[in-house]
Design a binder for these strands. Structure first.
Lengths: 212, 212
DNA sequence: CAGGTTTCGTAACGATCGATATGAATAATT
DNA sequence: AATTATTCATATCGATCGTTACGAAACCTG
């Protein structure tokens, strides 16, 4: 499982597994798990089928590793925002603004892989759908954790419904992902995010639609 | 194209096309366009392949007719809400609350067919993805139209950004669709909708989270 | 250099995909 | 009754799906 493990011998790889995984990730990001065929992967990764299967076991394992890589390389903004030593409102603002940028980055597929990867799947790919759902639920839980922290510190009201609010914020981010896929620009997503932020207590509750 | 047109002769159909189309619609709703195979459709519609192809031309046409039927039979709440002779805030409230119910109806697939039907597709199904996007954009435009009407009538402020707000509301509904697919209950979706509504001017701007 | 190990390229596997050819069966029309 | 039109059921089409034998090639260890 570790890329750093040295083999005891044998013919060396003629390709960089991480670069190949990157190509696969972008393809899954664009077309989803099931709609991405081995033929497409073969062309994008510039590998033969046996090379893919030797390095990544099978299509499902390749997709799971693509998810891990996406989590590590593409959406670090989320953990950064939620763990930054800033007020709760600012943390959530960074989260939504980061999503606005990340979901509409030029040269990358629009939206979030955790959604585009497979929302409605065939029964055979149910495990993949479940895996993606797990990632989405983890995001929602992370938001809830940050909000509860804000409530504990007194930034948010006593009876603030952290979980319900996290479900709202996660829902907004999911919606942004779809809007991004439908062509929304980074600026449009920022405006959407700013509107969504207006319901969160803190930061003086400004209701205007002017730019930052 | 019309179900009411009488044939000049020939053997009569041994099935009800509308019931068969309903079965297909639910299957597409659950699994999306590409992940729904003819074998699955054959079983759910209780028809043989030639029956399906004779009545609906091909899989793509069947899906498009399923979209039309979904639009007519499942999401009438949207047009009702937006065309009802009620204040703007109430119209939008009905829209979001209707979505909360419709996206989590027992016995039906979670979420909205216009999203679950195919968000990320193979290149061969690009036309289907475009068609779904057109439906989503039409929804957003309908919301924008209702908001502009509210602005024109003086219910909303002079410079109210109807289109940007419509993009926010459409995004929230898209997010609700995904939350519904991830198992959110009608009540959870109503809470989400109520939170989202708080940013819309009118109705006294109440910020509490209590039930209706 | 011989033995062991891993990856290489070529070719093809069985399963499933969407879609159809074929001819019998059932209706309205003449 | 004969003709025409449409749907029926059976069987199967070629293409693509994910996956894998197979043997040669390229490295490390002894």
């Amino acid at each position: 499982m570790n890329n750093l493990e040295k083999p005891r011998g044998g013919r060396p790889r003629a390709f960089d597994p991480d670069r190949a995984l990157d190509a696969a990730m972008h393809l899954f990001w664009e077309h989803g798990y099931e709609a991405t065929s081995l033929a497409m992967l073969r062309e994008a990764m510039r590998l033969t089928p046996p090379q893919i299967y030797n390095a990544f076991t099978d299509k499902e394992t390749l997709f799971r590793k693509a998810l891990e890589r996406y989590h590590q390389t593409e959406i670090g903004f989320a953990l950064e925002a939620l763990s930054a030593p800033v007020p709760t409102h600012e943390a959530i603002r960074r989260l939504l603004m980061g999503a606005a940028e990340t979901y509409s980055r030029p040269g990358k597929p629009g939206g979030c892989l955790f959604i585009s990867g497979g929302l409605a799947t065939s029964p055979q790919a149910q495990a993949i759908a479940d895996e993606l759902k797990t990632y989405r639920k983890a995001s929602e839980a992370a938001i809830a954790g940050r909000l509860e922290k804000g409530r504990a510190s007194g930034e948010l009201p006593e009876g603030f419904p952290a979980e319900a609010f996290a479900k709202y914020l996660a829902g907004v981010m999911n919606g942004m992902s779809i809007q991004a896929r439908d062509g929304a620009s980074a600026e449009e997503l920022r405006v959407l995010a700013r509107t969504a932020l207006a319901v969160l207590p803190g930061e003086g509750q400004k209701q205007d639609q002017s730019k930052d």
